[in-house]
Simulated scan of single mutants.
Amino acid sequence: MIELVDTSDTRAVRNKDNVLEFYDLVINQKKSEEFVGRFMTPGYVQHNPLIADGAEALGQFFGGITRDRAEARVIVHKIIAVGDYVFAHVNFLNLFNDDPADTGIAGVDIYRMDAEGKAIEHWDTLQVVGTPENAAPWLAPDIPRANPHGMF
């Protein structure tokens, strides 16, 4: 994993550590409903149209996924923290299927953090990872890749 953070900026370091712990506890350890409140404010604003505002709604969203998908997990490839913002380049695996060969969804999550290190706002952009042969299997099946570059 690549981490970019000014280690002298204790706020940015704390925010980065909180986002990493959020991913691990809430998704990888499947403890979303118990721990999401540790990382998000109650009035957390969500810009992903699939999830309602609020920490409780986020916990319920990931709780439903992790109850249904034993292999659901996230891998953080890059994380950047600057002041109140944290940007994470991630790979969500098995969120919507149980296929052991799932290539997952590449995401860039952007968090705006409060003075206590909790997320108060979140944006994301998501893209199906695809395979070396198929650029976007869910969105446009059988469209060949135009380049050899992977998502990570």
Rank of each mutant, 00 (worst) to 15 (best):
E3F: 02
L4I: 15
L4V: 15
R11C: 04
R11A: 14
R14P: 04
K16A: 11
L20G: 05
E21I: 02
F22R: 05
D24Q: 14
D24S: 10
L25A: 09
I27D: 00
I27W: 03
N28H: 06
K30N: 07
K31H: 12
K31L: 13
E33Y: 00
F35D: 00
V36S: 02
R38P: 03
T41K: 03
V45T: 13
H47A: 03
N48Y: 01
N48R: 09
P49G: 00
L50W: 02
A52E: 12
D53I: 07
A55L: 04
E56N: 09
E56W: 00
A57E: 03
A57V: 10
L58A: 13
L58R: 09
L58I: 08
G59V: 09
Q60P: 00
F61E: 01
G63V: 12
G64E: 05
R67K: 15
R67A: 15
D68T: 11
A70K: 15
A70D: 12
E71D: 15
A72I: 11
R73D: 00
R73Y: 00
V74F: 00
H77K: 08
I79F: 05
A81N: 04
Y85Q: 15
V86G: 01
V86H: 01
V86E: 00
H89R: 12
N91V: 12
N91E: 12
F92R: 13
L95G: 14
F96A: 14
N97M: 06
N97L: 08
D98H: 11
P100T: 07
A101Y: 05
G104C: 09
I105Y: 03
G107D: 06
G107M: 11
I110V: 15
I110R: 14
I110F: 09
R112N: 08
R112D: 02
D114L: 11
D114M: 11
D114S: 08
G117N: 07
A119W: 05
D124F: 02
T125F: 06
L126G: 05
L126S: 09
Q127F: 04
Q127I: 13
Q127L: 11
V128K: 11
V128D: 14
V128C: 06
V129G: 01
G130M: 04
G130E: 03
T131H: 02
P132W: 04
N134L: 08
N134G: 07
N134I: 14
N134D: 15
A136F: 10
A136L: 13
L139M: 13
P141M: 02
P144K: 08
R145F: 02
R145K: 14
R145C: 04
P148V: 08
H149L: 14
M151Y: 12
F152K: 06
